[in-house]
Amino acid sequence: MPKISLIVPCFNEELTLEIFYNAVEKVFSQHATTFKNITHEYRFIDDGSSDQTLVELKKLQTQHPDTVHYLSFSRNFGKEAGLAAGLQHADGDYIAVMDVDLQDPPELLPKMLTTLQQGNYDCVGTMRSDRRGEPAIRSFFSRAFYSIINKISKVQIIPNARDYRLMTRQMVDAILELPEYNRFSKGIFNWVGFKTTYLTFENAPRSAGESHWSFWQLLNYSIEAIVDFSEVPLKIATFIGGLFAFLSVVGIIFIIIRKLIWGNSVGGWASLVSIMLFIGGIQLFCLGIIGNYIGKIYLESKHRPLYIVKEQK
């Protein structure tokens, strides 16, 4: 019998777990005809929570031992590690990735399943139709990020797309063949290809609790995504280095000609120092770009695991 695996990363989500479970079960119950002859399971990933998330997961698992499973990390490894762990442990024929805060509406699951069963698509993703309730500066930088990465990367990412999606087993197996340590799931989902369609929904507030993503965490995540899926920053560093090397040659030629024609020494030491400081700053900027890529190589070369499981059931 076909099975749907629901991958649900959790970090300090003790208040939302039961609400999430009841909401999803309600969808399965109300659409029993759609989910006829299809079983489902939950794969909760506790990403080293410091609250009572694991306690709540154990309660859920005790109450529903056949459908609820959990993995608990030894510490916080990040959402990408949680997604990877869920994909590796899910054994369903269809695999869904969802957030536990119900900002990913479970009401879309029946339509997602029906679309996949028609055989025309391998993945049904979701995207928000608006960003209501989000700070204006966060929305601005989000739009800027999608604009930049889609211009400099061969992998195109749909603006406002969520991680929330339902995939076939074949697509998930393809994703699992990518062993990289530095992961940006939205890029990976698109890199592996396969036919994907998107459903839109209106932005909704969290069911409980607060978001654990700060502005700076999102900014750093965006930079990592650009580095993971584009070599353009390296090319920019190369271009800037070449440009300033050319300008320095032009400057040297100018100084030599000026000395031969007028014979006076070159003045303007303050300007010279300013130019040197400016060029030094450009060099450090370029070294920072290169260093970011070298750091990624360094982490990949260690071959450390993405996560460590402390307990599971």
Rank of each mutant, 00 (worst) to 15 (best):
E231T: 14
G281D: 11
G281V: 13
R43Y: 06
Y121K: 08
T168P: 07
S49N: 06
I157T: 11
E25T: 09
W216F: 14
F44N: 05
G263K: 09
K36H: 12
S139L: 06
E13H: 00
K154D: 15
F44A: 13
W213G: 03
G193L: 12
I275P: 01
L287G: 05
I226Q: 11
I158P: 00
K313Q: 12
A225F: 08
N150Q: 08
Y21E: 04
I289F: 02
G78T: 01
K154N: 15
R206W: 07
M112D: 07
L284I: 15
S185A: 10
M112Q: 15
S5V: 08
Q103V: 14
R304W: 07
I19R: 12
G295C: 11
V124F: 03
E56C: 06
P205S: 10
E107H: 12
D101A: 11
T62N: 08
A23T: 12
E18T: 13
A208H: 13
D101L: 06
V266Q: 06
P305D: 06
R304M: 10
R131H: 07
D46H: 05
V227C: 00
I257T: 06
F285D: 11
A225M: 11
N264E: 13
D47L: 01
I95T: 05
I95Q: 06
S74M: 06
V27G: 09
L176G: 09
Y121P: 02
G263S: 04
K195Y: 05
E210I: 13
L247P: 04
G92Y: 01
Y21G: 00
D173T: 08
A270Q: 14
G267W: 13
K296C: 00
K59F: 04
L60G: 07
E25P: 01
S214A: 05
A270V: 12
E311H: 05
H69I: 00
L272H: 08
L87I: 00
T197R: 06
N160P: 00
N120C: 10
F194I: 04
W216T: 15
F285A: 14
L284W: 15
Y198S: 05
E231C: 09
Y70G: 03
F35Y: 09
M98F: 13
T115Q: 14
K186V: 01
I252G: 01
L15Y: 07
M276L: 11
G242S: 13
Y42Q: 05
F239E: 14
L176E: 11
Q283D: 07
Q118L: 12
D163Q: 04
A96C: 15
I149D: 00
S248M: 05
A32P: 03
F239Q: 14
G82M: 02
I253G: 03
I157Q: 09
S211K: 08
E180A: 04
L113F: 12
V227K: 03
N120T: 08
D228M: 12
L166F: 07
I137Y: 07
